[in-house]
Design a binder for these strands. Structure first.
Lengths: 209, 209
DNA sequence: CAACTTATTTGATAAATGTCAAAGGAAAAA
DNA sequence: TTTTTCCTTTGACATTTATCAAATAAGTTG
């Protein structure tokens, strides 16, 4: 019986440690800009649901509206849509970042974007509707939202400039320097669609270097 | 003397009317989402500087950091940067919209983006530093900021999808349906760089239709 | 291991786009 | 009006990229 108690407390200790680490990961990734009060933190955490999900899991299926903000504690997510029957990859998001597709929520109509996991991942979900209530209650959470969207916007400007008027070869080289690990984690077919070129062209570019 | 007074009051009336209309224009363009209290409105207005500026005026010159948010009451602005000695147009913004280049302000280093006016324009400027003070003072202005950036982000996603994996011909057609008036207001050389194609290609595309 | 699926490369060819040079046009200035 | 400048089109050609088809490589499952 003592032995059993020891095991229970051991596993409880592990669980507490794990939870603490996870919480830290989430708040550390946002803390450089926004410091949250304990109340805000508690309110946020109480609404976020953490799940461990397998590779291939679909967060937002075809035709549905994305109703959550996702924080990726671990793993890799891909947002894509269909055009002329082909998948176009809009972006990849890896650990310690957020992903979502807001336009569907804002207009309340499906925007055609799907989100899937490319690796086994640990994902925190927070429904937009709940987030909006938090925006009302906590000025500092509204600030957090503004901050995160600003970051996203700056990233998007960057991404646009890496595609507009840029040759396939240069696009690949830019990715190679800015995010080399992505090439180890993602099949080349998805990379090519992210770069806006065909898989064959990407293959030839890689061969030529 | 009576006659003079009459003229003075007449012009004062015109001036008040004009000012009112201008204020209305600004708040109406943001009101669909965010309703501001009189205090917030007053605080915002007191920090915004209105100017009538000629065609060709440079809001943000080469190498400088954009330190203001600009509201375009009338006219047309263009954000662009240099690559390989050529100007690349990032975006056009017309009346009743906002423009700025935030990444320079966030990182406090020039991001290479310039903003110029393509038409005689009426521009309201608000320094970021002042705006940030307003964010602190008024939750609802922070919300306004979040809202405007969200809109910008959705626009950017849209724009990205209109370039990624899209042929020159399709890009032109998309612009033709989504913003036909732009083609009447902007030289084709700037349009082509906005679409990420050469001017010659654009000319041939237009000839072929 | 064999069979099967998925991912990647390669080849041949066509289509799209860029480059360089020059000619028209249109608008602004003298 | 004439000149000048800027904007747009056109031509010839080179380069890049897509398309279609097939082969090879890699990873999975029975």
């Amino acid at each position: 019986m003592h032995c059993f108690d020891a095991w229970v407390s051991y596993f409880y200790y592990i669980w507490v440690m794990a939870t603490t680490i996870q919480k830290t990961s989430f708040f550390e990734s946002i803390s450089p800009f926004v410091k949250l009060s304990p109340e805000s933190r508690q309110a946020l955490l109480s609404l976020m649901r953490k799940e461990s999900l397998p590779k291939g899991h679909v967060l937002v299926p075809c035709g549905e509206i994305c109703r959550n903000v996702y924080y990726i504690e671990k793993g890799l997510a891909r947002t894509f849509y269909l055009r002329d029957g082909k998948e176009v990859t809009e972006r990849f998001k890896a650990e310690n970042s957020f992903t979502c597709s807001m336009s569907g929520h804002v207009t309340n109509t499906p925007d055609g974007r799907q989100i899937e996991l490319l690796e086994q991942s640990v994902i925190w979900s927070l429904p937009y509707t709940e987030l909006e209530k938090l925006y009302d209650r906590f000025h500092e959470i509204e600030r957090l939202g503004r901050y995160l969207i600003t970051q996203e916007m700056i990233e998007l400007h960057q991404r646009l400039s890496e595609i507009q008027f840029i040759s396939a070869h240069e696009r690949y080289n830019t990715l190679l320097t800015s995010n080399p690990s992505l090439l180890q984690r993602v099949p080349l077919g998805l990379i090519s669609s992210y770069l806006g070129i065909t898989q064959e062209t990407l293959s030839r570019i890689r061969a030529k270097i």
